[in-house]
Amino acid sequence: MRPLTLWRYEARRAGWTAALGPPVAVALGVAAALANPLPGDANTARVLLGALEMAVPLAAGVACASLVGRDAAVELQLTAPTAYRVTLLRRMAVTLAWTAAVAGAMAVALIVTGWWARWPANHGALVGQLTWVAPTAGLSGLGFAAGAVLRSPGAAGALVSTVWAVQQFFGAAAQETRPGRLLYLFATTRGAVPGDWAANRLVLLGAGAGLVALAVLLLGRAERLVHGEDA
């Protein structure tokens, strides 16, 4: 199979969740800012950046959670020359590349129009991209690892959504301890202890990478992927 054809196939196999999730997340964020304008440009900018920090990572995390368990005949996949975990990593790469393209386009639009700078805690046009990159990495890694452990797209997606919701609605409690602050997903638009933002972003990136590594390790065990078999 030619490389371009292969990547197109993997993009299709990633599913509609991966294709529609990021643009829908961005569209909802923009619609929220337009439909319910808040007093002051800073508040509107916060809503727009919040779409990048909150909605886009959730869409990516749920999409990555749906990758494991989508193939009806996984036994055939396991007999292919290419390891099944490599196939899943390709699908994850396609999912995250599309997410990055959508989020990056929105970020550029906000920078060009000046809305990015209107949020005081924007952290600049370059480093500030960690606003969406870090939580996207964290939730995507969690989703992929949950899929590998649970082998159920629905259960893995529910876990990602639950973690997101807990941090969304109990943000103050999450930031009462140092570990909670370092793993907080919304440090740019919901606030962070002064000096903790950079560490928070780096920890989320590291956590995402570690969870992907765990998933790859688990997916190397063929018996975990065959339904009806015990891990």
Rank of each mutant, 00 (worst) to 15 (best):
M1N: 14
R2W: 10
R2N: 15
R2M: 13
P3A: 14
P3H: 14
Y9H: 12
R12D: 13
R12V: 14
R12F: 08
A14P: 04
G15Q: 09
W16S: 15
L20D: 07
P22V: 08
L28A: 15
L34M: 12
L34V: 15
V47W: 08
L52K: 07
E53G: 05
M54R: 15
P57S: 08
A63I: 05
A65T: 04
S66A: 15
V68H: 07
D71C: 06
A72G: 08
A73I: 12
A73M: 11
E75L: 03
Q77T: 09
A80Y: 06
R90P: 03
R91Y: 11
M92G: 09
W98A: 08
T99Q: 05
G104F: 00
A105H: 07
A109R: 04
W116Q: 06
A117E: 13
V127G: 08
P135L: 02
P135Q: 08
T136E: 06
G138F: 07
A146P: 02
G147L: 03
A148P: 03
A156M: 11
G157T: 10
L159K: 01
W164K: 00
A165N: 02
V166K: 00
F170S: 11
G171C: 07
A173L: 15
Q175P: 03
R181H: 09
L182H: 02
Y184C: 02
L185R: 00
L185Y: 01
V193I: 12
A199I: 02
V203Q: 08
L205Q: 07
A209I: 14
A215P: 07
A215L: 12
A215E: 12
A215Y: 03
A215R: 02
L217P: 03
L217V: 14
